[in-house]
Structures are given as structure tokens and as C-alpha cells.
């Protein structure tokens, strides 16, 4: 009778421990490996700093240049890992096979979340559901992607909070990207007016406020529109326009809203009676 122990699949196909020659680890090898990782860290940081500086010189190419930040970091760390496993530790193919088996067991036992984050980071770098500089909604958080690391993605929210989101969130939750690598993005302010307000005039005011904003971006493919929705007890004006730089989203929204409300008040275009609208809307 053959004894089958739990978790045998983890070691299936791996060499017997007695067949694996020991890895010769002395102080100099450890120091060399640490040195390689330290150099990799410095190179990754320097490249990241240089690319970020370059990207900030122009709005037009900011996101394109920043796209290379996580790719560069990934390449640098992979090269460092290869260098440590190869020339520094000088592992044979049997040792590498055994190492991968141990790694699999360790992952299965406890650090699978970390591994999921790392895989998520790799997928994000190559599949590019979002890039550094994009405005995204990740989990419950919305903001500008400021860094894509090996383990996590950093977002700066509109309230200037720095949020760190684990990379595996990309696998488990939908990701909404507002600009997909472009410097401009659509902004959709909404305004509510009373049912008897002069709707043509209200549309004209909103349209002009969008077109004349200091933050607007206009092109043949990026037009401005204002749609009217008739609700019970109110009318909603849903405006769409592009802001010239995703970082100006809040300022654009504020600029348009402030000038529209000022003009509505000046011309007697009334807001709906909120209580009545809620009652009528049921």
C-alpha cells in the first residue's frame, strides 16, 4: 500500500531533497546579493525620478512618459533577481527547480496575497488597464494614479489623500479609467432648474460657461454638449465637456458651476423646490 500524504501535489515532479546539492551561502555571497538589490533600488528610483521630471515638462506627453516608470522598475528588479540567482548564487537547474518548489509551498502556506499583488502588478504593467497619471476608480477610491509598484498602486484623491490600493484589487473589482492615457478627460457637471424656468436660456448659459472656461479642451473630436432631462418637479441639465488636463478636473467643475450659478441668479433662473421635487418624484 502506498502512503499518500496531503499536499503531495505541491512536490510532484520535484527532485528529492537528497538530490539537491546545497547552496553555498557565505557572508560575501549574501553581501553581494544585497548589494545587487541595493543597486537595483537606486537605479529604479533614479530612473523613476528622471522619467517623472521629464514627464512633468509638458501636459501633452505626461502620461505617455510616465507609462515607462513601472516598466523600467519591473525590468530593473527582474534583471537584479536574475543576476542574484545566476552569477551571484550560481544555482544549478536542479537547485532552481527545488527553489521554485519551495517557493510554491511558501505561497500556498501563507503569502499568497503578496504573490497575487505581485502578479497583479506585472499584469497592470503589461496589460495597462491604467497608467501613472490616469484618473481611475479603484475599489472605493477615485483619484490620480501616482505610482504603480510591485505590490500596490498609489492614488492621490481629489481631497489630496494618498491611498494605497493592493494590486490584486485589479482582479477582483471593476476598474473605471476616466482618461485611458490621454491628458484630457470628460467632465460631466449637472444643474437642476425649476420646471417653469427658461430652459433655452439655461442651456445657453451652461454651454457658454463650458466653452469659455479656462480649463476647457476643444477639438473636432472633443465637443461640448448639454442635454436636458425632464423630471417630476425639476429639469436636469447634463453637460459634457473635456478638461485640458486631468489634474484640472476639480478646478474645471468649480469654475463652470460657479459661473453658471452666478448667471442663473442674475437672470432669475430658479432652482427647483427640492422638497416638492422629492415628493413628486416619489
Amino acid at each position: 500500500m502506498v502512503a499518500v500524504y496531503r499536499g503531495a501535489w505541491l512536490t510532484a515532479g520535484l527532485p528529492e531533497p537528497s538530490d539537491v546539492p546545497p547552496v553555498e551561502l557565505d557572508v560575501s555571497t549574501v553581501v553581494a546579493a544585497l548589494f545587487v538589490f541595493a543597486v537595483a533600488y537606486v537605479v529604479a528610483r533614479t530612473a523613476s525620478y528622471g522619467l517623472t521630471w521629464l514627464s512633468e515638462q509638458t501636459v501633452e506627453r505626461r502620461i505617455t512618459v510616465k507609462m515607462f516608470v513601472p516598466i523600467t522598475k519591473f525590468v530593473v528588479y527582474v534583471v537584479a533577481l536574475y543576476y542574484v540567482l545566476g552569477p551571484v548564487l550560481d544555482l544549478s537547474s536542479t537547485q532552481i527547480l527545488a527553489f521554485s518548489g519551495v517557493l510554491g509551498a511558501v505561497l500556498g502556506l501563507g503569502i499568497k496575497d503578496l504573490f497575487a499583488n505581485i502578479v497583479g502588478g506585472v499584469v497592470i504593467v503589461f496589460e495597462r488597464p491604467y497608467r501613472i497619471g490616469d484618473m481611475v476608480e479603484l475599489g472605493d477610491h477615485y483619484g490620480e494614479v501616482t505610482d504603480i509598484g510591485i505590490r500596490s498602486t498609489k492614488l492621490t484623491t481629489l481631497d489630496d489623500d494618498l491611498v494605497t490600493v493592493p494590486n490584486y484589487v485589479f482582479f477582483t473589482e471593476p476598474v473605471s479609467n476616466s482618461n485611458a492615457g490621454e491628458p484630457e478627460m470628460m467632465v460631466v457637471p449637472e444643474f437642476y432648474v425649476a420646471p417653469d424656468a427658461d430652459i433655452d436660456r439655461a442651456v445657453s448659459v451652461v454651454r457658454d460657461a463650458l466653452l469659455t472656461s479656462r480649463y476647457v479642451y476643444l477639438s473636432d473630436e472633443h465637443e461640448v454638449s448639454v442635454r436636458v432631462f425632464d423630471g417630476r418637479g425639476y429639469r436636469k441639465l447634463r453637460a459634457k465637456a473635456y478638461v485640458n488636463d486631468v489634474r484640472n478636473e476639480g478646478a474645471f467643475r468649480t469654475d463652470v458651476t460657479r459661473r453658471v450659478l452666478e448667471k442663473f441668479e442674475e437672470e432669475g433662473i430658479e432652482s427647483p423646490d427640492v422638497a416638492a421635487a422629492v415628493l413628486e418624484d416619489g
Binding site: Q57, T58, V59, E60, P183, E184, R214, Y217, L218, S219, N244, D245
Partner: peptide, 8 residues
């Protein structure tokens, strides 16, 4: 102005 996307 081009760098700041204020002229297109």
C-alpha cells in the same frame, strides 16, 4: 501655453 495645453 502649449506645454500647459492653453492653446491647441
Amino acid at each position: 501655453l502649449e506645454r500647459r495645453r492653453l492653446v491647441w
